[in-house]
Nucleic acid binder design. Structure first.
Length: 1126
RNA sequence: GGGCCUGUAGCUCAGGUGGUUAGAGCGCUACACUGAUAAUGUAGAGGUCCGUGGUUCGAGUCCACGCAGGCCCA
């Protein structure tokens, strides 16, 4: 029976299927975890994917990356528990449900109950779980799919509530405002997702105003600020400048009122406001009404000089007046001089930057109080000015006799055209235009013009959106900013720049985490409040909720609990029906917000184990994570929320090592999308190429943190080049091992030191490879690891070791040398199966099983083995260097033989090569591998020419790194001098160890080590040179060499005949040859034994003529031959 | 608009700390091998190192400014 299975053809997808089956039947994954019970843990966190869409090829990338390090660490003896997980909440789910039901958010609670809507979400969210599980299995991603965490689960939510309460108790949760895109027409806030819908941003022409803000304490001096939203000017409460920018004060006239005045603006913006043609006009010569307005710079200053200047409120509405530091000049880091005046007008309620800047610098904003005493902006939620501004505008219209397409009342000033007024009406004037006319008349506008820019619109109503303050709950992440920055520095980021750059910068500019989402399907915020907001409670567990409900029922606020005690669901609408009782006996209602889904995923280290309600020990053993991996787009998503929660609540990092992988693009570098049809179907790819080549390609082609241009040709290439070569190597081994009934037995193996040098060499290379792979993997660099394995397999093992050792496998009977060859190749293949098992888990296990089928005590799976580290004692650096020489020398000789002037094929033996050697070490290294070189390039002898010989022609080069440091600018001349050197100078510096070179009148002493001496020429010979190594080939063909060449040619032809005849390897033959010219006859006589051995001929008979002969083309002549089976 | 990444042969990618002639695989061309054979080996051709400035005796490499593509955020 055959000990090693042989394969004519390999079905890679089939290997995937059968090995997967084997793993399932034998619970290999489970065993890989359970057999490490009690061992040190290596912790991996699974970033939960969302199963409401089908998985794509990029998920193969992400999941492979996650898998490989867990497998590697398992081999190394760690216990690696990997709990799968599902992200189930959030907007994408809601949108999909709405699309399927044909409803919009407005319909929820009307056409469909919240209960029904959420039920639908719950059904939808796991719709493609089967596809995901299928893909996960098929690509060999080992993760626990049977007991995953699910973010909608009540236990999961309970942990979230626990964490929120912890934050609440630390006073890190508060209610505030945030400026968000808001659609007055639809009466709703918009998510950034909705804003990014195609068509949301449109080019529109708006009225822009450069307003004049009159400085206090300086006559007729104004600061200019530009805005494309004039309706925000009544809410102005500060002006921002750039501290480092240059500003000027200009003496000029107002273009509308012609009044003389000074204006302040950025120096580099003058070109936009002043006509150079007016520069020559004297200020005194100006007549009101002239088109060209003269100007004169009277002062220059830096932005920082303007800080703190006070100005008059632009719209002097008494109710909107504010105390200092309002209406002053402050600093804004985002101020540029690309447009406008280099001064930015700030309205706290209507711009996110404005809001942030004013909050940071403690400047109040323009608000009024509503009937409840809450501060509200002067534009209401319909997008219309409150009467406080409306009244002012109506009065001003009368004062300035402004007429419009309609009569404006105090309640008619919509800031955008939300009423659908006819804009083509000649008299049409919107609020912005009315404002600009008033400002022009009052010497408060310096320039008014139409300005085209891109502005976002509501995708539902097609109306422009406003940035508007909306109530929100926040986590005060800024309180822990420094600690987050500090702990981030302890995290090993791959690539590093993502940690320091993208993530580091993000932390440096941290703002508070806006937790609120106004939605239906998500984790409810567990805060209940009284109507007036004076009393509130944050619930931190189901127990607490139950007991509070009991209290409320006792207080008569509810008749019964809206929560089903048997099957607890903490979602809306049930929690919304819960009314709790405050300490003072007042009813408390839940704040209707849901929380950001990123909190769901960021809390998974705790919630996946239902900590602290259960599994405390498991949690503690598996926190923080040693390793996580996710797409780089998660930097401010999952990576941040993991980090933030860990730092704020546990003063710890959440993960120690992280790979942020790039995108998977199509082969042309374009984003894959189902719509464009360039998306690659992972299942189809798996079916065609199997999982191993796909994984290997993705890891080896480019660093995972770079974007991958995914090409099926690339997968095919990996399969052919790497897996194909490895498979050939295995087949070669199996073929002969079976013939010789070789079975590996470690206890009886020939000690490595007693094996052939070639064996020692490949074993040494193998140890080096193991070290490289270990080092790369410890550094989370899978690309380096896979490339190293590939190089070893293809270039070293197959193309060198197997090729050179081939004859040892099929010559003669079993002996120590043959056994050593088998053992060496076997050990290499076994090592490879383990080394590659993390990356190509199916093929590796399959090869392992094939190799160990007849070996007692072998493991059930390569994935259950223990990592074999490199044996340093087996590394022989000198031998590796020697072999490197052999490879290079062989290559040089091949290239010489191939030279058109020489043109002698390898089959023709040649007498000798000459190698100039300038030192003993190189000579010894080459001597070591002399035999190998001789047989590889078919020559009889290697000869060395050393220093003592006269033939050697030396050349010299400057040693640039050394000389550069020593000489600096003088280098140029010295290098030129060295390049002119001949025999004498080289001899001198070799003799004396130094030489003096005259350089521009000076003398420079050069030392021997500052030049590189080599030999690149042997007069009268054909030589080839590569990296300091030179080889000359003796191309003289003696009679004997010619005869041997002919004999080898004959062997070659006979072997072809044998193959044509369909003979088996071990079949014996008889050869008859028709006599030829003398040289040929002599060749067959002198090399008859050789020919017979090589062709397994029992007899070689020379005859005058041969009947039924085959005529062979021997290049230079023809030969009649007859081969018969003996 | 800001932050970050990428740009080297037709394609995919290597190129510590600057050093004379920039490498590999695939593809292409030619040759060889024919006992690993639907395999394999060898050689050759192929380059504006995205551009422009700068630092330096010397820049693919360091700096600045751009260009192109990408991601994230405004």
């Amino acid at each position: 029976m055959k000990k090693y299975q042989e394969f004519k053809q390999v079905d890679y997808p089939g290997i995937g299927d059968s090995v997967l089956q084997y793993w399932k039947e034998n619970k290999i994954f489970e065993k890989s975890v359970s057999q490490r019970d009690g061992a040190e843990t290596f912790t991996f966190f699974e970033g939960p994917p969302s199963a409401n869409g089908t998985p794509g090829i990029h998920h193969v990338m992400a999941r492979t990356l996650k898998d490989i390090f867990c497998r590697y660490k398992t081999l190394q003896g760690f216990q690696v528990k990997r709990k799968g997980g599902w992200d189930t909440h959030g907007l994408p789910v809601e949108l999909q449900v709405e699309k399927e039901l044909g409803i919009t958010k407005e319909d929820i609670g009307k056409k469909i109950t919240v209960e029904e809507y959420n039920r639908k979400c719950r059904e939808t969210v796991m719709r493609f779980k089967n596809e995901w599980d299928d893909l996960t299995e098929k690509i060999g991603y080992w993760v626990d799919l049977d007991d995953p965490y699910i973010t909608f689960d009540a236990k999961y939510i309970e942990t979230l509530w626990y964490l929120l309460k912890k934050l609440y108790e630390k006073d890190l949760i508060y209610k505030g405002y945030t400026i968000q895109p808001y659609s007055p027409a639809a009466g709703t806030g918009l998510s950034s997702h909705e804003l990014n819908q195609p068509g949301s941003y449109r080019d529109v022409k708006d009225t822009s105003i450069t307003a004049q803000f009159k400085l206090k304490g300086e006559a007729n001096t104004y600061i200019l600020a530009w805005t494309t939203t004039p309706w925000t000017l009544p809410s102005n409460s500060a002006l921002a400048i750039g501290e480092k920018l240059d500003y000027v004060k200009v003496n000029t006239f107002n273009p509308y009122t012609f009044e003389p005045q000074h204006v302040i603006l950025a120096k580099s913006r003058m070109g936009a406001y002043f006509n150079p043609k007016a520069k020559e006009i004297a200020i005194a010569d100006y007549n009101p009404g002239d088109k060209l307005i003269p100007y004169e710079v009277v002062a220059e200053m830096k932005g920082v000089d303007l800080l703190g200047l006070q100005y008059e409120q632009l719209f002097p509405i008494a109710e909107l007046a504010l105390p200092s530091p309002a209406f002053t000049v402050i600093s804004g880091d985002y101020v540029t001089t690309e447009d406008g005046t280099g001064v930015v007008h700030l309205a706290k309620a209507f711009g996110a930057d404005d809001f942030r800047t004013l909050v940071q610098q403690n400047v109040p904003g323009v608000f009024v109080q509503d009937e409840k005493g809450n501060e509200i902006p002067v534009v209401d939620k319909q997008g219309k000015f409150l009467p406080v501004v409306g009244t002012y505008l109506v009065n001003k219209m009368k004062e300035h006799a402004i007429t419009a397409h309609k009569e404006f009342g105090v309640d008619d000033f919509y800031v955008k055209n939300y009423t659908g007024d006819d804009e083509s009406d000649k008299e049409y004037k919107n609020t912005d235009i009315i404002i600009s006319i008033i400002l022009k008349n009052e010497n408060k506008a310096f320039k008014v013009e139409k300005y085209e820019h891109s502005y976002p619109h509501c995708w539902r109503t097609d109306k422009p959106i406003l940035y508007y303050p909306l109530e929100s709950w926040f986590i005060k992440t800024t309180a822990y900013k420094d600690r987050m920055v500090e702990l981030n520095k302890t995290i090993n980021w791959k690539p590093e720049a993502t940690g320091t750059g993208r993530f580091g910068n993000w932390l440096e500019n941290l703002v508070d985490w806006n937790l609120s989402r106004s939605r239906f399907w998500g984790t409810p915020l567990p805060i209940w409040r009284t109507k007036d907001g004076s009393e509130e409670i944050c619930i931190g567990s189901i127990e607490e909720l139950k007991s509070e409900i009991k209290k409320a029922i006792a207080a008569g606020l509810m008749e019964s609990s809206p929560i089903n005690e048997e099957d607890i669901d903490l979602h809306r609408p049930y929690v919304d029906d819960v009314i709790l009782v405050s300490a003072s006996g007042a009813p408390m209602y839940r704040e209707p917000d849901l929380i950001d889904v990123w909190f769901d995923s960021g809390a998974m280290p705790y919630a996946q184990w239902h900590f602290p309600f259960e599994n405390e020990a498991v949690f503690k053993a598996n926190y923080p994570a040693d390793y996580i991996a996710e797409g780089v787009d998660q930097t401010r998503g999952w990576f941040f929320t993991l980090h933030a929660i860990a730092v704020m609540l546990f003063d710890s990092v959440s993960f120690k090592n992280v790979i942020a992988n790039g995108l998977v693009l199509d082969k042309n570098g374009n984003k894959m999308s189902k719509r464009l049809g360039n998306a690659v179907d992972p299942f189809k790819t798996l079916k065609e190429y199997g999982p191993d080549a796909l994984r290997w390609y993705m890891l080896s082609n480019a660093n995972p943190w770079d974007n991958l241009k995914f090409s099926l040709d690339g997968v095919a290439e990996v399969q052919r080049r790497f897996f194909g070569t490895l498979q050939n190597t295995y087949n070669f081994f199996a073929l002969y091992a079976n013939l010789d009934a070789f079975v590996y037995d470690k206890s009886k193996a020939v000690p490595v030191a007693q094996r052939a040098e070639l064996d020692q060499w490949i074993i040494s290379k193998l140890q080096t490879l193991i070290s490289e792979v270990e080092q790369a993997m410890d550094n989370y660099d899978a690309t380096k690891a896979t490339r190293a394995i590939m190089n070893f397999t293809v270039d070293q093992l197959s193309n060198w070791y197997v090729r050179l050792a081939r004859k040892r496998f099929w010559r003669g009977d079993m002996n120590a040398d043959k056994q050593a060859a088998y053992e060496t190749l076997y050990e290499c293949l076994m090592s490879l199966s383990q080394l590659m098992s993390s990356f190509a888990p199916f093929y590796a296990d399959w090869m392992y099983k094939n190799l160990t089928a007849s070996v007692d005590g072998a493991s059930e799976s390569v994935h259950l083995t223990n990592w074999t580290s490199a044996d340093q004692a087996l590394i022989n650096v000198d031998l590796e260097a020697s072999m490197d020489m052999a490879q290079r020398i062989s290559s040089l000789v091949h290239s010489l033989r191939k030279n058109p002037k020489i043109g002698i094929k390898v089959r023709q033996p040649l007498q000798r090569i000459l190698i100039p050697v300038l030192n003993e070490k190189v000579k010894t290294q080459i001597e070591h591998v002399e035999e190998l070189i001789k047989s590889e390039v078919n020559i009889k002898a290697v000869e060395y020419i050393d220093d003592a010989s006269d033939v050697l022609v030396k050349s010299v080069k400057p040693n640039l790194p050394l000389l550069g440091k020593k000489l600096g600018p003088k280098m140029r001349h010295v290098v030129a001098a060295i390049n002119t050197w001949g025999k004498e100078q080289i001899a001198e510096i070799e003799r004396n160890g130094e030489i003096t070179v005259p350089v521009e009148g000076e003398s420079v002493v050069l030392l021997l080590e500052e030049v590189l001496i080599s030999s690149q020429d042997i007069p009268g010979w054909s030589v080839a040179t590569d990296q300091g190594l030179t080889v000359a080939l003796d191309v003289t063909l003696t009679q004997e060499l010619k005869q041997e060449g002919i004999a080898r040619d004959l062997v070659n032809r006979i072997q072809n005949l044998r193959k044509d005849m369909g003979l088996e390897v071990q079949d014996k033959i008889q050869i008859e040859i028709a006599e030829q010219e003398d040289l040929v006859n002599a060749a067959f006589q002198n090399f008859g034994d050789y020919i017979k051995t090589e062709t397994q001929a029992l007899a070689l008979i020379m005859k005058a003529t041969v009947a039924d002969a085959t005529v062979l083309d021997m290049d230079d002549f023809e030969l009649s031959v007859k081969v018969t089976k003996a």
